[in-house]
Write a protein that binds this DNA or RNA. Sequence first.
DNA 1: GTCTATAACCTGATAGAC
DNA 2: GTCTATCAGGTTATAGAC
Lengths: 215, 215
Amino acid sequence: MNEANVRETKDRILDAAEALFAKQGIEATSLRQITSEAKANLASVNYHFNSKEELIRHVYLRRIRPMNQARLDRLTDLESNEASSLDNLLDAFYEPTIEMALDLKDKGLTVGQFMGRLYTEPNEAAQSIITTEMGGVARRFSAAFARHLPHLSPTEVIWRVHFSIGILAHTLAAAAKIQHLSDGRINPHDKQEVLRQMKRFARAGLTAPSLESTT
Amino acid sequence: MNEANVRETKDRILDAAEALFAKQGIEATSLRQITSEAKANLASVNYHFNSKEELIRHVYLRRIRPMNQARLDRLTDLESNEASSLDNLLDAFYEPTIEMALDLKDKGLTVGQFMGRLYTEPNEAAQSIITTEMGGVARRFSAAFARHLPHLSPTEVIWRVHFSIGILAHTLAAAAKIQHLSDGRINPHDKQEVLRQMKRFARAGLTAPSLESTT
DNA sequence: GTCTATAACCTGATAGAC
DNA sequence: GTCTATCAGGTTATAGAC
């Protein structure tokens, strides 16, 4: 089982869980399905992860931790650069997620669906990950967006960052819908095109004039 | 049980199911929880709805049918009006949903969460409702948006309508997140404010210049 | 680390009395 | 239309052999 071309049981469980969570949701997926798909024993989940709850956390964190680290690294770079633009900021915010979701061979849409659903997932383990892992990132980026959008009030910035997150989450989670709505003409796997369209829309929304009377 | 101030068992089951689906998701909610909350007998679900699957369909359709009818009625009105604007179109698209989700007393966020999650819900009954109930509406509105956005290619229109749907879905499903991100300063129950902010952002995104070189 | 067997419990659905 | 009782099968978690 530990030969070079056979991944560890632990990783096979994570991969199988992620794919099944993406396809049918967390609650509809049983440990029996996961271990059967991963060609592992039922008891191995509890051996490696202690419980289904902790397995869920590991599946999410494996993707989110490096993704958010990449975002924050890029943000830090921009903050020490006088010439950085709103466009750079949107790249730093969107690209690591799109990259992670659509780059992984054969499972672009799987990981994307799984990640995009994070925000609307009712499961408690998922909810707590939003608070612990995403909250800080959203705040740091909101502050950075605010510096680029001095014409907006603080709450207007929050509204618009919220919408920008919604665009990302919906594009990842509901990629199949845009394929269907366009009768197949749009390919939601095309990383560069997805990013280009998302940024164009979000930048226009973010820079729109303030709704608050300033005259 | 059939007195004037006691709603029918059938309605009590629908209400309880909707609230529980919103809070914990469809798969995590058992018929026993639903009937216990509705003060009805376990067997009554199968008596009134035949199966859990059909109950799910009824819970969704009760909200979606009148909402989409209102959208299409307003769209038909606009189509016979030469002077209709993009702003009118966004109202026709967004307002019936916001109205339904935030108007119902005491359960604004409940119905909103439930409705916003529709797009990312993995459950099969939910998925099929998107196809049968939302697909046609999205197409009719896409055509109307296209008429107001002659500078865009057909696929660009689809992308931007998709993002506009994402803004709506995310705002409804993740209303608690914007409350949290704004440290309570934003009230996601304020119907007029939600609509105003959503429309401002979406209109700017929709009308942004085309990405395709036209020179 | 991997496995089998099993404990303790929950699930949707239904038969049949009232 | 409402109820109880029950069926058949699913669930997570764990004890203990190898």
